[in-house]
């Protein structure tokens, strides 16, 4: 069974692009675009890896990350964070909140795939 990625992002075009490349890489892709309900979505979907945007409507990616880390079910969940704010302090903030990997937009598709692979080996040895 294919491993699952949950993409939490509010920009439709970016959701579409990430979904496209992950699907092609053999992942099951779920998406969610509301910050307020993001944590429940994670708990409900139980993904193998989460791709999390920072600037989400309702709640920031940092807060979502912190809450996930405090929950036993998701404390060790691999989380890849994407942000359009590329300042050093943003990276520090993410690392303090317990991020697994941090990337600044815009990214190359290969970079995203490499990061996801580093966090979770895909099923079936597609690579």
């Amino acid at each position: 069974m294919a491993k699952q990625v949950l993409v939490i992002e509010d920009e439709p075009n970016i959701i579409e692009a990430i979904s496209f490349i992950l699907l092609r890489d053999g992942w099951t892709v779920k998406t969610h675009s509301n910050g307020l309900t993001a944590v429940e979505a994670v708990l409900e979907r139980k993904p193998d890896v989460v791709i999390l945007d920072v600037m989400l409507p309702g709640k920031s990616g940092y807060d979502i990350l912190r809450e996930l880390r405090e929950l036993p079910e998701t404390a060790g969940l691999p989380i890849l964070m994407l942000t359009a704010r590329g300042q050093t302090k943003d990276r520090e903030l993410a690392e303090r909140a317990g991020v697994s990997h941090f990337m600044t937009k815009p990214f190359s598709n290969a970079e995203v795939l490499d990061a996801v692979h580093a966090l979770v080996a895909p099923v079936g040895g597609a690579t």
């Binding site: 920009e11 075009n13 970016i14 692009a17 990430i18 496209f20 490349i21 092609r24 600037m55 359009a84 704010r85 590329g86 300042q87 600044t104 937009k105 815009p106 990214f107 190359s108 598709n109 290969a110």
Partner: peptide, 25 residues
């Protein structure tokens, strides 16, 4: 500045991602 960065990077992300898709797929 942070806002501008965000507002600029978001469309650029889409542009880069889809141009790479068009090129590589």
């Amino acid at each position: 500045l942070s806002q501008i960065s965000h507002e600029l990077r978001t469309p650029m992300t889409s542009i880069r991602a889809f141009s790479e898709i068009l090129r590589d797929t």
